[in-house]
Simulated scan of single mutants.
Amino acid sequence: MAETKDVQHHIVEIPVTMDHEKQIMSALEAIQDHPLMEISESPGHLLLLKLWQREEDLFGRRISQREKRLDTIRSEIFHLCLFFLAFHGFFFTILFTSFENSTSDNFSCRKKWWVPMIVNLCTSCMTVFLVHMKLCRYWKVYGDMQRERNESRALTRCVQELRMKGASFDLSKEWASGKRMKSSSVEIKWNVLSLCSRYLVTVWLVGVMGLAAVACRFMTCA
């Protein structure tokens, strides 16, 4: 025999005190007085905020692309240096083997020593030139990236100021008012020391190239 049970619905009333109502009203007033609410109610400030946020996103993308480009250039320079060292190792191995198995006198030394040296210098000069061009490109991209980072920081500060001030923010203010941030870490001093530090790889390759030319003469006429 089925038993039926009466389901009773109980409604619990939560008493709302005056203090609770005041807290709710103050919270609503605080939300309405918030700068972001003021910006959402002002078409000019809202449009400016959206434009600046879009520029922030574009700056971030460009900086990310330049960082990837720097990584690519570093990899290319590394591979060129490896080719430079591998070429000299292979070149001197062949040179040593060929002249060790041949009879050489003073006449053949005077006649043949410049041939391997010219081959070595031509290949070395081409490699050093390519490395130097890659280094120039690297520092150009690096300088552009640092400039965009500084501009991105200036834009971010203006966006934060707009969010804090709300409708009281001056719409005529420009984030890039012709003044660029100057940082002592980014500022470049074009002197001999800084150039040597920037193009240290080129200086090292030129030194190795000079030593290789002397070694060609020595190994040919030894």
Rank of each mutant, 00 (worst) to 15 (best):
P43H: 05
M37K: 11
L49T: 04
R62M: 14
S64G: 15
F83E: 11
I39T: 04
F84G: 03
E67V: 02
L51F: 02
F78H: 03
E56D: 10
F84D: 08
R54G: 11
E55H: 12
W52G: 01
S42E: 06
D71R: 15
E55W: 10
I39P: 09
L80Y: 00
L48N: 03
H45E: 02
F83H: 05
S40A: 06
M37Y: 11
L48W: 07
D71V: 01
F78K: 08
F84I: 02
L51S: 02
F78M: 07
L58G: 04
R62E: 15
I73G: 03
R62S: 12
F84N: 01
R54N: 14
F84K: 05
G44Q: 11
I63V: 13
E41Q: 14
F59A: 08
F83A: 04
L48C: 01
R62A: 15
E38D: 10
L49S: 10
R62N: 12
H45F: 03
R54E: 11
L80E: 10
W52Q: 13
D71H: 14
D57G: 00
R54H: 12
E38S: 13
D71A: 14
S42L: 01
E56H: 10
I77K: 03
S42H: 09
F78V: 08
I39H: 03
Q65G: 11
K50A: 02
F59M: 11
E38M: 10
Q53G: 09
E41L: 09
R69C: 03
E55I: 09
T72W: 05
Q65W: 14
G60S: 13
K68I: 00
S42R: 01
L51Q: 04
F83L: 08
D71Q: 15
Q53I: 02
R69E: 15
T72D: 06
R74P: 06
S40Q: 08
S75T: 08
E41H: 06
E76S: 01
P43V: 00
F83G: 00
F83N: 03
G60P: 04
T72S: 08
S42D: 15
I77C: 01
R66Y: 09
E41K: 14
G60T: 14
Q53T: 14
K50T: 03
L85R: 11
G44N: 10
R74F: 02
R61D: 15
L82G: 10
L82Y: 07
E76Q: 02
L80H: 05
S42P: 04
D71S: 15
S64R: 12
E56L: 12
D57I: 05
R62W: 07
K68R: 12
L46R: 15
R66F: 07
F84E: 01
G60Y: 09
L51D: 00
L47K: 15
I39R: 05
L80K: 10
E67T: 10
G60Q: 13
K68V: 03
F84M: 04
